[in-house]
Design a protein around this nucleic acid. Structure first.
Lengths: 146, 146
DNA sequence: TGGAATACCAACCGATTTGGTTGGAAAGGA
DNA sequence: TCCTTTCCAACCAAATCGGTTGGTATTCCA
């Protein structure tokens, strides 16, 4: 049970974009390379991750020279779950927890489903109630530099 | 970001064992086959899962004919995290969140580490404060049969 | 108008994990 | 001795992870 680096890198990128956004919402575009080298992440890999976040409308872009990426809205309006669901899929315990699972024979009152859903719900609660700004603030409490 | 069926099957097995345990702690041994067929899980696969739980001292066994598996202690004394950590490893966001990561260059005040740890801590909180009995009870609230 | 710089995109790749199966050995009851 | 059961190791196909390669499209600037 773990979050992959996809989710991790995504959160880091979002946090970096959030810093720029909070600093000046009108000049908040960051170049991919900047984030990648700063955070020591493979540029090509991070690009693929960020493109998913763009498709999910969490990020807006500017192409061409002087282009870059920026948050689509205020970091206080983006939840950690928004990022994680895009990059890692909905938090689910096995296939049975979704209704559209063909392999699962039991359809109502499924023991597995109810048992696991209990946990899923609570975990979702956590990530759906934490914003990118929250994450950033908790970082600032512990360190003064980016 | 998901729990695999390993964790799911493990929780189901533990819950089934908990039912037997609560019913009569002195006659609480269940045969693997019983659980597997009841829950429609591959017998051989479930066995491998359960053997891990045994090694972690969450389950005790009786070999030979009339053998079986039983909870090692009261279901109120076993957390969901106990089961999940054994089967899916500690909840971790990427390798960087652990101190013994050679690939990570940044050693103190690592941005990634602090950002992700915030989430990890909260998720851990959830699973470490939910017992097998809790899970069972919440199931009983929703359904009358096993 | 011709580079640069940048976002965008698709195909490939090795290693690891998932979700099993197969085939047995060891223990114990009837 | 046979049957049931736990225990255990080896194998496997498919998916996912964490990238890399090699380009195309777009836009700024000199």
């Amino acid at each position: 049970m773990k979050l992959s680096t996809k989710g991790k890198y995504g959160l880091i990128a979002m946090a970096d974009l959030a810093i720029a956004y909070l600093n000046d919402p009108n000049d908040s575009y960051l170049v991919l390379k900047t984030i990648a080298t700063k955070r020591n992440i493979s540029e090509a890999y991070l690009e693929r991750i960020i493109s998913k976040l763009k498709k999910a409308n969490l990020i807006v872009t500017q192409r061409g020279s002087l282009g870059g990426y920026s948050l689509a809205r205020h970091p206080n309006d983006i939840n950690v779950s928004d990022v994680l669901y895009v990059l890692e899929g909905k938090l689910d315990v096995g296939g049975c927890s979704s209704a559209n699972d063909t392999s699962c024979k039991i359809k109502s009152n499924c023991f597995s489903q109810i048992v696991c859903e209990e946990i899923n719900v609570k975990i979702r609660e956590v990530v759906e109630n934490m914003t990118i700004e929250d994450v950033l603030k908790s970082y600032l409490k512990k360190s003064k530099e980016f």
